[in-house]
Design a protein around this nucleic acid. Structure first.
Lengths: 348, 348
DNA sequence: TTCTCCTAGTTAATCGTTTAACTTAAACAA
DNA sequence: TTGTTTAAGTTAAACGATTAACTAGGAGAA
C-alpha cells in the first residue's frame, strides 16, 4: 500500500505538502504541485480514508438500518438514498436487521426488537458513521426504539411521536385521493379493506376515506369497512364477506396491493368480473401489481423520493450539528395514482 | 466521545491495560480487570473502530457492489450475505452502481460501465474494506471489468472467464430439470422462449433443455425455439408466434418469469386456457410470479444461498491471503422447482 | 544471601493522515 | 539600509487504538 509518506519521499517534499496538494489547501507553487501530481499518478496512490477519518473526525459514511432488506419498499428507498449520497460523496454502511426472520412477522418480542436495534446502532457508532437513517415498517411506531445519540437520525417509512426528523408519505391524502378517484368514476358504494385497527397508517387512511365520502355527500356505510392484516389471505377473506353482502359494493379500496391480490382471487372464485362488475384499487404500487389480472390500479408510494429526501435532510443536519444548531422536521410526501385496468365506471 | 485513555485515567491504569482487558490478551489481574470493566460500563465506552482499524490494518468490513439494487434478485442475495456477515462480525459497505439508470438497459457503453466500476472499487479500497463481493447481471460476462486488487473478490450472479472466485447457480441443470418436469407430466411438444442468443446463461439453459429432450428420445423441433430478451413484451410476442403455429406446443418453458407473464397475457388474448390448454413453466422464482393467474410454476434461483456462500468464501479467502495462499473456485448451486398451478398433463 | 523466573503491569512507538505553528528566503517599502 | 510582509515550504503533534519491549517486585531455588 502506497502511503502519503512514500509520495512525499519520491517527490522530495514533506508529507504536509502532499496533503496540501491533495486537499487543495495551503500554499504550494505550481511547479511543486505538478511534481506531486505526477508522482501521485506514477505510484497510483489511493488515500487511506480510515487514517483520514481518524484525524478529521468524520467518515463521510452514513449508516442505514433496515428491518428487512427483502421487503418490497426497501430497495427503492435505498436507491433514492444512493442517488444523492453518491453526489455528495457519502458511502453507505448497511445494517440489515433481518428482523422478521429472527422474531417472526408479529414482532411482539419488543425487548429483543430493541436489543437488535441497539446493537446495530452501536456497530454503526463504533464505525463512526456521521449519521443514521432508519428505514422501519410503516405500520409500527418506533418511538424510543433507537437510543439517543449525538448524531443525526432520520426516520423514514416509520412513525415516531417524539420530535425527531422523519420522512414519510401522506397516508390521509393518498387515501383521500384514491377514494375521490373512485367517486369521480361514478362509484358511491365504496368498500374499504383496512389494515389492523391499531395501525397508525391504517387509521389515517380511514380518515382520508371518510373525508372523501363526506366531501361528496356520500353516506358512510359501516358494513363497507373491513379489517385485514395487509396480507393476501385477509384480502381474500374480506372480499368474500363484502361481496356476499345483500348490497355489495361496486368498488373496493384495498389498503395494500397484496390484499388487492386476494380480492382478485376471491372475485375469480365468485365469478365476479373486475373491473366490469367490481372496481378495485390497491395501495403501495408494488411491481407485482402490474402482473395482476387485470393490471391493478393503485396508489404508488414515493419510495425513491423518500430516500432522496432522507439523505438530503441528513446532510443538512450534519452541517447544522457542526454549528450547534438543532432542528427537526416531519415531512410527508404525496403518493401518485397509477391508473391501470382494475377500475371502471359502475353499471347503469 | 469517551476514549480508551479516559477509561485508563479513571481506572488508574495505563491505556495498554485497558486495551488488554478489552481484547482479553496480556496479563491482567482479576482485580484490575474488574475495576476496568466497571469503569467501562460506568462511562458507556464504545471503541473507536476507525482507530482500531488503522492500527490493525483490517476493518472487518466488506464492500458489496451491486449493479442496481432495485432488480429483483439483489435484496435476497444481500440478505444471504448479511446472515453470515453478522455472525462473523463483518459489516457491509454497499455501493449501488445504479447502472441501468445511468447507462440504460442495454449497458452498451462499456467504457462508462468500466469507469463506474473502477471508481466504486477505488472508493471501497480507500475505505480499506477487507474484500469485495460483486453482484452483477447474470446475463453478462464481467471478465476484466473489475481492476486487479490485492484483496479477495467474489463474483456472484455473474460470469467471469478468468480464474477468479465465483458463486452462481447451475443454468444447465435447472433447465434440464424444468424440461424433465414437463416431460414427466406427459408433454413432448415443449417450446422454449430463450434469452438473447449471445447470453451465456441462455445458451447453457438451451443445452439443458436439449439434453432433457434427448434423454427422453423426444425429437427436437427448431420451430419451438424462440428468442426473447428476458422482458415481458418479448414473452408476449413469442408466445403469439408459437401458438399461431399449425402445430402448437402443449407446453412452454419461458426463461424468465416476466416473459412467462407475457405468455399468459398472450394466452388470455387468444383464449387459450393455462394450464388446461397449455402448460407454462417460468424461471427465476420472482415473488410476483405467485400473483400471476394462474400462479406460475417456476424454477427458483438459490439467491439467499448464493449470498451466504459468497461471504463464506470471502472469509476463507481473507484468511488464506494472510497465509499467502492463493486459491479460487467456481461454485454452482442448484435451483429448486416450485410447483404451482400453471402446469398440467396434456389433453388426450 | 543471591540469582532466576514470573506476574502484572507501564512506556512509547506506531498505523496514515491533517494542520497549527514555525522557518526561510525573496519581495517590497520607507 | 533596515524592517515588514508574503509565499512556499517544513516540523511535529495530534487523532484513538494496539502491542513490542521494558520494568518492578515478589516467589522460589540454590
Amino acid at each position: 500500500m502506497i502511503r502519503l509518506k512514500d509520495i512525499a519521499e519520491r517527490a522530495n517534499v514533506s508529507t504536509a505538502t502532499v496533503s496540501y496538494v491533495l486537499n487543495n489547501t495551503g500554499n504550494v507553487s505550481d511547479k511543486t504541485r505538478e511534481k506531486v501530481y505526477q508522482v501521485l499518478k506514477e505510484m497510483n496512490y489511493k488515500p487511506n480514508e480510515i487514517a483520514r477519518s481518524l484525524k478529521i473526525k468524520k467518515t463521510s459514511t452514513i449508516g442505514v438500518i433496515v428491518e428487512d432488506i427483502t421487503t418490497f419498499y426497501v430497495p427503492e428507498i435505498i436507491d433514492g438514498i444512493n442517488k444523492y449520497a453518491e453526489k455528495l460523496g457519502f458511502s453507505i454502511l448497511l445494517v440489515n436487521l433481518r428482523i422478521y426472520k429472527k422474531l417472526g412477522l408479529k414482532l411482539d418480542n419488543i425487548e429483543k426488537y430493541k436489543d437488535l436495534i441497539v446493537s446495530a446502532t452501536n456497530e454503526l457508532l463504533s464505525k463512526q458513521v456521521d449519521g443514521i437513517i432508519y428505514i422501519g415498517v410503516h405500520t409500527r411506531d418506533v418511538t424510543g426504539l433507537i437510543p439517543e445519540i449525538n448524531k443525526p437520525i432520520i426516520y423514514t417509512y416509520c412513525y415516531t411521536s417524539s420530535n425527531q426528523d422523519s420522512v414519510n408519505y401522506d397516508d390521509e391524502n393518498a387515501a383521500f385521493e384514491a377514494t375521490k378517484y373512485l367517486i369521480h368514476k361514478g362509484h358511491s358504494k365504496i368498500a374499504i379493506i383496512s389494515g389492523p385497527v391499531d395501525s397508525v397508517p391504517a387509521h389515517r387512511r380511514l380518515i382520508g376515506y371518510h373525508r372523501a365520502l363526506m366531501d361528496h355527500q356520500i353516506s358512510f356505510n359501516p358494513a363497507y369497512i373491513k379489517t385485514g392484516d395487509w396480507e393476501y389471505q385477509s384480502g381474500y377473506e374480506m372480499a368474500k364477506e363484502l361481496l356476499k353482502n345483500h348490497d355489495p359494493p361496486s368498488a373496493i379500496f384495498a389498503m395494500s396491493d397484496v390484499m388487492a391480490g386476494g380480492v382478485l382471487d376471491a372475485c375469480r372464485e365468485l365469478e365476479i368480473k373486475v373491473p366490469d362488475d367490481l372496481s378495485l384499487i390497491g395501495f403501495d404500487g408494488q411491481e407485482c401489481s402490474w402482473y395482476f389480472t387485470p393490471k391493478l390500479t393503485t396508489m404508488k408510494l414515493p419510495l425513491g423520493q423518500m430516500g432522496e429526501l432522507s439523505i438530503k435532510k441528513m446532510v443538512e443536519r450534519i452541517k447544522q450539528l457542526k454549528n450547534n444548531e438543532n432542528h427537526s422536521e416531519k415531512t410527508q410526501l404525496l403518493c401518485e395514482l397509477i391508473e391501470r385496468e382494475s377500475v371502471s365506471c359502475p353499471h347503469q
